[in-house]
Design a protein around this nucleic acid. Structure first.
Lengths: 250, 250
DNA sequence: AAGACAAAAAATGAATGCAAAATGGATGGC
DNA sequence: GCCATCCATTTTGCATTCATTTTTTGTCTT
C-alpha cells in the first residue's frame, strides 16, 4: 500500500524537545496535536488522502487514543474531516471554500485594523512603517519571497496591535487553513498585482497613521478581497499544483 | 461530594431520539459532543467548576473514551479548558475576555453585513423588514423576550444572507460562547438602551435596502459595540448573577 | 473475461485496564 | 492549636482489547 505520508521530510517522531517556539504542552495528546497540525498545514498530506490511524501511530510512536483525540480537534478546526467509520482525510477545499475563507480572513483583518486604530502605540506604528519600507525594498528588488514574508509580518502586526487575543487566535486558525493550500499549490502572487498591492499598503499605512478606523477597515477588506481574486485566479489557471489532485488512495 | 452538575433539568442521558433539530450524528462521540456543548452553552455547569469525567460518563451512560474526545473538541472551541492532569473546567471568562468576544462578534457581523449587501435577494430583504417591524411591535409592547428573540433572528438572517458557510459556523461558535454567559448571568438589556438600539436597527435596515455594504459594516460594528457596553455594564453592576461565582469544588 | 457474491483482512469506534499524577484526609511535629 | 508530611483514594492519561464496519481479496458464475 502506498502511504499518503512520505517517509522523507522531517520525522515527527522525536520528542520535539527544544523547538524554540512558545509551544509547550505537557500532555502527549497536546504534543501530537501541535505536530500533526503543523504537518497538515505544511501540506505534507495530499488533499483528500486517507490517513490510516495505525500508520500515524507508528510514525509518532504512540497509541491510537491520543492520536484520535488530536484528530477530533483538527477536524473541529476545519483542517481535516472525519468520515464515520471511514477515517480522517485532509479536508478538500473547493474554490468556493477558499473564497469563503479569504472573505472571513478579510473580515478579521478588517476588524483588526479598526481595533488597532483604537489601541496602537506610536512605537507599533513606527515598527509597521519600517516593515512597510522594508517590503518596498523587496518590491523594488523583485524579491518575492522577502516581500511575501514582510507582508505577512505587517498583517500580523496589525492583528497584534488590535489587542485582542481571541481575534489573534481565530486569525491564526484561518491563516493555517489557507496556508495549507498555499503550500500545496505553489501559490505565487501575480507580478502584475504587485504594484497595486503596494499602493494599497500605502493607503493602509496612511489610514493607520491617522487612526482612521472605519476607513482602514474598508481598505483592509478591499485589499484582502483583491488578494483573494489574485490567489484564486492563480489556482484556477494552474490547478495542477495540488488543488485538484485526486487522493492517492481512496 | 457535591456534584457540579445538578440532577435537575433535562436528563441528557437518553439516546436523544427524535429531537427535531437538524443534528444527526452517527457516532457516539458526535452525539455526546452535541449534547455536551448544548449543556455547557445553556449554563448548566458553573463557571470554573470541576467536572469529573467519570461523573459525566455515568450521566451520559458511555465510557470515557468518546467523552474525552468530545471534551477535547469543546476545549478547542473555547467553551471549556483542560488543565493537564486536572480535568476539564468550564472556561471562566474575565471581563476582558467578554469584551474581546463581543468585539470579534462585532467584526463578524460587520463582515456579514458587507457580504450580505453583495448577495442578498429582495425576498430576504423583505423578510428582514418584516422581522424588523415585528421587533418594533415587541418594543412598543415592552416585550423584552420577544424583542430579544426577533432581534437575534434579524442578526442571524443577515449572517445567512452573507452566503458564507464558514462565516456562519464561526459566528455560531462565538455566539455560543457568549450565550453561555448570558444564560449564567441573567443578562437583561437595559431599558434605556432600547430606543437607541431601535434607531440603530432602522439604520441597519436602511443601509441594507440601499445595499451600502461599507456603511452597513460600520453601523453593525457600532451597534454591536454599544451592545457590548450595555451588556458588560450590566454584568459589572450585577456580578452576583454568575460571572464571578467561585467554583463549587476546586 | 467481466461481474457478482462471499469470506478474509484491515480499519474504525468504543470499552476496559493500568500506571502516574493529583486530591483529601489522617498523622505527627512544632 | 497550627502546619507540614505521608498515605489512601480518586482521577487522569494512555495503552490495550473487543466489537462493528468497511475494504480487499478470492472464487464462482455467466
Amino acid at each position: 500500500m502506498k502511504s499518503a505520508i512520505p517517509e522523507t521530510g522531517v520525522p515527527i517522531t522525536q520528542p520535539a524537545a527544544g523547538n524554540g517556539s512558545d509551544r509547550q504542552e505537557a500532555s502527549l495528546h497536546g504534543e501530537i496535536l501541535l505536530r500533526l497540525r503543523d504537518y497538515v498545514v505544511e501540506g505534507n498530506i495530499a488533499e483528500g488522502a486517507r490517513v490510516p490511524e495505525r500508520q500515524l501511530c507508528d510514525m509518532l510512536g504512540i497509541s491510537r487514543t491520543p492520536l484520535r483525540e488530536a484528530l477530533k480537534v483538527l477536524a473541529a478546526e476545519g483542517l481535516i474531516e472525519l468520515l464515520p467509520n471511514r477515517g480522517a482525510r485532509v479536508r478538500r477545499l473547493s474554490q468556493r471554500d477558499l473564497e469563503e475563507l479569504f472573505d472571513v480572513m478579510a473580515g478579521l483583518e478588517s476588524l483588526a485594523g479598526r481595533l488597532a486604530c483604537e489601541a496602537i502605540t506610536d512605537e507599533e506604528t513606527a515598527a509597521i512603517e519600517r516593515l512597510h519600507y522594508e517590503m518596498y525594498g523587496h518590491y523594488l528588488h523583485r524579491d518575492m519571497h522577502g516581500y511575501f514574508q514582510t507582508n505577512q509580518q505587517i498583517h500580523e502586526s496589525i492583528v497584534a496591535a488590535a489587542r485582542n487575543e481571541t481575534l489573534k487566535t481565530t486569525y491564526a486558525n484561518f491563516a493555517g487553513r489557507i496556508r495549507r493550500v498555499r503550500y500545496s499549490a505553489n501559490f505565487a502572487r501575480k507580478r502584475q498585482r504587485w504594484a497595486e498591492a503596494m499602493r494599497e499598503h500605502e493607503a493602509i499605512l496612511d489610514a493607520l497613521r491617522r487612526r482612521a478606523g472605519s476607513e482602514l477597515s474598508d481598505i483592509l477588506f478591499q485589499h484582502l478581497r483583491n488578494k483573494r481574486a489574485a490567489a484564486i485566479d492563480h489556482l484556477v489557471e494552474a490547478p495542477e499544483g495540488g488543488l485538484e489532485t485526486t487522493p492517492q488512495n481512496g
